[in-house]
Design a protein around this nucleic acid. Sequence first.
DNA 1: CTGAAAGCGCTTACAG
DNA 2: CTGAAAGCGCTTACAG
Lengths: 333, 333
Amino acid sequence: MNTTIKDVAREANVSPSTVSRVLAGNPRISDDTKERVLQTVKKLNYHPNAIARSLANNQTHTLGLILPSEGHDLFKNPFFIQIMTGISVYAQKKGYYIMYAFSKNENEEVNFIKNYTNSRLVDGIILLTSRTNDKCIKFLKKINYPFVVVGRPENTENMFWVDNDNFQAMYKVVNTLIMKGHRNIAFIGGPEDWNMSKDRLDGYKRALQVHGINFNNDLIIQEKDFTEQCGMEGMRKILDFAMPSAVVTTDDLLAFGVNALLHEKNIKNISLVGFNNTPLATYQIPSLSSVDINANKLGYYAAKLLIDKLRDSSITDNHYIIETNLIERHSII
Amino acid sequence: MNTTIKDVAREANVSPSTVSRVLAGNPRISDDTKERVLQTVKKLNYHPNAIARSLANNQTHTLGLILPSEGHDLFKNPFFIQIMTGISVYAQKKGYYIMYAFSKNENEEVNFIKNYTNSRLVDGIILLTSRTNDKCIKFLKKINYPFVVVGRPENTENMFWVDNDNFQAMYKVVNTLIMKGHRNIAFIGGPEDWNMSKDRLDGYKRALQVHGINFNNDLIIQEKDFTEQCGMEGMRKILDFAMPSAVVTTDDLLAFGVNALLHEKNIKNISLVGFNNTPLATYQIPSLSSVDINANKLGYYAAKLLIDKLRDSSITDNHYIIETNLIERHSII
DNA sequence: CTGAAAGCGCTTACAG
DNA sequence: CTGAAAGCGCTTACAG
């Protein structure tokens, strides 16, 4: 029913092997037959069957993207869609396809990975988060399947990953605040078991330390989610014991919550910084300063790392660091 | 290297055909051999190769999802990610996979569709928008490939689609406002060539008409994008000629822009309604009333429609209407 | 109830 | 430079 390589072969008076070679760009084919085959391909509107190709080549040119469970809260910011776009751009450039699966928890993630890899449906996996003691990573290492992770994994040995320099990003934020005279800077973060959370907290501590400021545990709050709710809660806890002059957060949603509470309590003159620079940061009152993490680029380079490696196993690059930018707005005083 | 059906057959002392039948749940297999095969499958940790299966069955159990170009602005709201989640949930339930591709313009969309369909990589396509005179729809109809569209297409004949009742959604919004005493209600919408835009505008007009209110063209603005920028622009244009007591929009982002302008000009006492009920609507000041379109459910039912049809071509359902809810907040006075 | 054989639509080592 | 053949890992109509 669909035209196959055989139809083309018959019509062009060559063997299927020859058609295949022409299509693969095999050099030792006479210009004459090449021309004839190409014309016939066009004439019959022939398109190779990707599945048959995959079976013969033992590679699907497909990447499996695992959307993490915690992400459900992050859906409120465009982080994932931006990463997905970035991935898609590089994949398309190289003729790769992307499959995605949303999961409800870590075990479900592992199940999707098992499904993808056992059935040999994908050539590699992209993970969008790395937890401490990550089950997905552990499994993929065990079966030795190619994969890349967005976010620096605990142990980077034999690992492919892309990430921002989270330590430095937060270091710069806090440093900027200190330079403006702030000494009482609070930190409100998300789940502590994310490596990203740890790095940002370290950056915070280090910046204080460098300037000889003792850090105060009452000013450090780690919530279980990246939500406005948690931001509000976190800020409430801090205000129970202290009155900081600035608050840094690890997500805009947390910052939104903080801001809402400050409005509620009619507290002004506290500087506030978010993370991820979501489009709506501009619409906070005052407009929220935030760290742009270049999510698009994270996705792009994640795909690049994995695809380049799949195409050429001798490649030695095993990670990319994507720059961040602090976007200063009115929330920094 | 990977264990195949042959390995299982050898180990279990049966033919590959028998293994295949057991795995397919073929009834006329003795309980004895079935048992033995299943045990061997477990013992060898055998998993069928999905690609080989696809080739033999002539179906991939994969759906192709086309992310529309205009969407880039909508990335600021969780619409797409919610739809993708909904799709994914039903697909997973039925053992289907999802591939996605972002496109920069309508032609690129068509190219992705061609790519997916020509290569027989997907069993069906999900479109996330329907324009007037939609090239994607036209192409898919021409080649007679299964597909479903989110958003009611122009011509619903032989078409599979899911949508909100956009007419009624906006009708209800305007009606609610009228009941509260509003007579000067402005409408700010997105691109006029979207069927969704037309339906919502019709709902607006009809509600006015039913209450005997003449509509005023100065109060109707259609912008080219669903952005804050456009919302601001639209509102500016309206204020040049009139002072409405309420403004309805077809997207929260538009409403955010309107709200920003109202703040800027220090205008109060204008009711405002958004669309899509994005999480940040709550954080507007005053909190923004908005229409919840149940994007998750739209995705879920889009997948359901397509997958059910692929599995049973006798199915007659060809569309689902997903309910909307007006979420009233402080922005309605 | 089960097996041998052919087929799905490609690719590629081998031979010439 | 090109073809015949075998193979990728399944499924299934046919035969018994």
